[in-house]
């Protein structure tokens, strides 16, 4: 299967401004979501997304088609940056909790949905990193099990175990909302 980003990337390498904006529109929301769900911190997630693109721009002219999908490569870069930050957090404990993600005003979304979202965010933050990563990649980023397992460097069976344990923990944390 070909890389759907390949043609766009070639135009980006030539500095085509329209292609740059198209790639940003296609990837930035996705990478920002990945980072914010991994880190639970809006400011840090924006830094990760921006740094991922800085590396992507450097890579654009050297990209060799067929080696990997560009989307997978960007996910790998973003995940590595997230893990760097998570590691630094563990090594430098602080009394200040990470900034709670503020989705901003959303007039079309009810208060109850916002509360549900905040509760889900809190439950996700409470998961072990690897379980959270598995759920983020499979549920939110909608990667295939093979892509997610490859990104995480585990077998598909190990991925499924992480997914099951993560979802079981979430179900327990949100039991009043989702039932047993």
């Amino acid at each position: 299967m070909g890389d759907p980003d390949e043609a766009l990337l070639a135009r980006v390498a030539d500095g085509d401004p329209a292609a740059v904006r198209a790639l940003v529109a296609r990837k930035l929301p996705r990478l920002l979501s990945l980072a914010v769900r991994m880190l639970g911190d809006a400011a840090e997630a924006e830094d990760v997304a921006q740094e991922t693109f800085v590396r992507a721009w450097k890579q654009a002219r050297a990209w060799r088609p067929g080696v990997a999908k560009f989307d997978t490569w960007m996910h790998r870069v973003a995940l590595n940056l997230c893990y760097d930050r998570l590691r630094r957090r563990r090594e430098a404990p602080t009394d200040t909790p990470p900034e709670v993600v503020d989705d901003g005003p959303a007039p079309d979304r009810g208060l109850q949905a916002m509360e549900t979202g905040e509760r889900v965010a809190a439950a996700m933050r409470a998961l072990p990193d690897r379980q959270r990563e598995a759920i983020v990649l499979c549920h939110y980023q909608e990667l295939s099990n093979i892509e997610a397992a490859a990104l995480m460097g585990v077998s598909v069976e190990a991925l499924e175990s992480l997914l099951s344990r993560g979802r079981r923990a979430l179900r327990a944390a949100l039991a009043d909302m989702v039932g047993d």
Partner: peptide
């Protein structure tokens, strides 16, 4: 039901 709850966490 769990999927629906997870989807309530809207992306930034």
């Amino acid at each position: 039901r769990l999927d629906e709850a997870l989807d309530a966490w809207a992306p930034l």
